[in-house]
Every structure is written in C-alpha cells, then in structure tokens.
C-alpha cells in the first residue's frame, strides 16, 4: 500500500494538503505519482492566482498521459514550486516533500474539514483497488 502520511489531508483526486500556519501546502500523493509513472511536465498557476476547491488548478503530465490537478481548498496562490519546471521528476522522487506544487492562503477555512483524513484516504484507496 502506498505511503499515506498521517498529518496530511487528502482529496479523492489524490492531492494532499498540509496546514502550515495560515497557509496550506498542496501536492499529489505517492499513490498518484506511482499511477502516473514518470512525470515529465507540471503546469502550475502563477503566484496571486485564485484557486477553487475541487476545481482544476494545473496539469501534471507523464510520458503517456495528461492529468488535471484539483485544488483541495479555495484561496490565493502565495507560492509555487518553480523547481518542477526544470525537474518534474521530483514529483516521483519525493511527492510529499520537494515535489510539493503550490501554497494556498485559504479563503474559506471551513473547507479544511471537508477533506479526507489519512485513514479515510487509505480506505478510499483500498476500495478503489477492488
């Protein structure tokens, strides 16, 4: 079973979200990167862009496929991982660490509670496997 850190929240589209003070850091899960295979391109919004929970905020492409990225939470993008434009493979190598994608300043803190807990996401993955 893929690595699912306990201190993060998750979406059913396989993004993770991490509370860091007033901000939320976002990336894709170990399961997601494994399913994608080698990531060769990541398209992220610009700093200052608004993202909306459950809506597309960017794109990740593997050799074979294009996949949308979905925002776990609404708000303003305050930071993006510029390293991914040169080294998209970082998403495969360290999905919960150096492979992060954006940091969002949430506009609706209530959305946090809508996200899956690690246990719920693990259950979701287990069901998807059947």
């Amino acid at each position: 079973m893929a690595n699912v850190p306990k201190d993060l929240k998750y979406t059913r589209e396989h993004e993770w979200a991490k509370q860091e003070g007033d901000s939320v850091r976002v990336g894709i899960t170990a399961y997601a990167q494994e399913q994608l295979g080698d990531v060769v391109f990541v398209e992220l919004p610009k700093v200052g862009a608004k993202v909306t929970a459950t809506k597309n905020f960017g794109v990740v492409e593997s050799v074979k496929a294009v996949s949308d990225l979905f925002a776990p939470i609404s708000g303003e993008v305050v930071e993006i991982n510029g390293e991914l434009s040169q080294k998209p493979e970082t998403v495969n190598q360290d999905p919960y660490g150096r492979g992060w994608m954006i940091v969002v300043k949430p506009s609706n803190k209530g959305e946090w509670d809508q996200l899956l807990t690690a246990q719920q996401y693990e259950d979701f993955l287990a069901r998807a496997a059947h």
Binding site: G37, D38, V40, S62, V63, K64, E89
Partner: peptide, 20 residues
C-alpha cells in the same frame, strides 16, 4: 509489469519506468 489494453491485447506498458 503494468499491463494495459493495446489494440485488443493485454500488454506491458512499463516494468520499472518508461524513462529508465
């Protein structure tokens, strides 16, 4: 191998990774 449908066949799309 990761197996996928290809032209009516169940074929390996990758073993360790496409780039590798």
């Amino acid at each position: 191998a990761r197996m996928v449908p290809f032209g009516g066949w169940d074929m390996p799309v990758q073993y360790t990774g496409i780039l590798d």
